[in-house]
């Protein structure tokens, strides 16, 4: 036990990334996070923090482990039987990456939005009230939460007259904003976005980007994106992943203008990826 702890400490020392100055409150801290899919080592020794009320972008070529790492942060990898996640993910002083801690309970504090909009085949209202209902919210509370959440994502005026219509009637961009509203309705502290605009047109994309900037006032946000311009536009911090390694993690400005690693320079200049 102790020898293992020492070993972990040593690897932590070795694995130094240029971390941003801690001028902000840390909301979540990942230490030595590794993910294995069967025998495949998909994410290697990641050390990374999410700071309160900031947007952190994960960039990198396809298959670099950025989405896999994001899915560790709300224990979504638990749903894949072959996946094994090691390391510590500290939130509010507790390592939530322990199998004895209930993953469902953890996910109630961390919202997630997926690549493809996935509204349930229910009404707009029922989609947003889904999580509050699970937690036992009353009808009045649900009603209020639905309105609040829809207001926050700027969808209220567009749908307030058809709250009880099927959510599938909405356009792709509206559906994605609905999914964000659905995550907001459970009042999380962190929102994870897994390439939320990759299935959307440019106008819907820019609406979501504005929304993310708006949301960071209330939430801590991590976003996976394959679009470097998007990362530059909306994020405060950027983490560059390559082949399962976290190559560089820094202030977005810094990382884009003065990258310290050759791999980052190559990726940003389009030499691979």
């Amino acid at each position: 036990m102790t020898s293992q702890a020492v070993f972990q400490f040593q690897t932590a020392q070795e694995n130094i990334h240029p971390l941003p100055q801690m001028e902000q409150v840390t909301q979540l801290e990942a230490k030595q996070v590794n993910v294995f899919y069967g025998s495949k080592h998909a994410v290697k020794d990641i050390h990374l923090s999410l700071y309160k009320n900031s947007v952190t972008a994960f960039i990198g070529p396809s298959g670099c482990g950025k989405s896999t790492f994001l899915r560790c942060l709300n224990r979504m990898n638990d749903t894949i039987p072959s996946a094994k996640v090691t390391g510590e993910i500290m939130i509010d002083g507790i390592n939530m990456n322990q199998s004895e801690l209930n993953a469902t309970q953890i996910r109630r504090h961390i919202g997630m939005v997926f690549q493809k909009p996935n509204p349930f085949m229910k009404s707009i209202f029922e989609n947003i009230a889904f999580a509050p209902r699970l937690y036992g919210a009353s009808k009045a509370e649900c009603k209020q939460l639905v309105e609040e959440s829809l207001q926050k994502v700027g969808l209220w005026d567009e749908v307030k007259d058809r709250l009880h219509h099927s959510a599938l009637e909405l356009s792709g961009g509206q559906q994605q904003r609905l999914c964000i509203a659905r995550a907001i309705a459970m009042k999380p502290s962190i929102i994870l976005l897994d390439e939320p605009t990759s299935a959307l047109d440019p106008i819907s994309t820019s609406k979501i980007e504005q929304l993310i900037l708006e949301l960071k006032k209330d939430f801590t946000i991590a976003i996976v994106t394959h679009n470097m311009q998007q990362a530059a536009r909306i994020s405060d911090y950027t983490a560059f992943f390559y082949m399962g390694d976290l190559i560089e993690f820094n202030h977005t400005n810094q990382l884009f203008h003065q990258p310290s690693q050759q791999a980052t320079i190559d990726y940003l200049t389009g030499r691979f990826g």
Binding site: N118, F120, F130, L134, C179, R182, M186
Partner: peptide, 26 residues
């Protein structure tokens, strides 16, 4: 689609809640 199950899990639903509130209804 699997994405609906994931959506439900991500909202903090247990497996049985996902089955009874989402899958059966859908």
């Amino acid at each position: 689609p699997q994405s609906l199950r994931e959506g439900s899990y991500a909202l903090g639903a247990t497996r049985w809640q996902t089955i009874s509130r989402l899958l059966v209804r859908t």
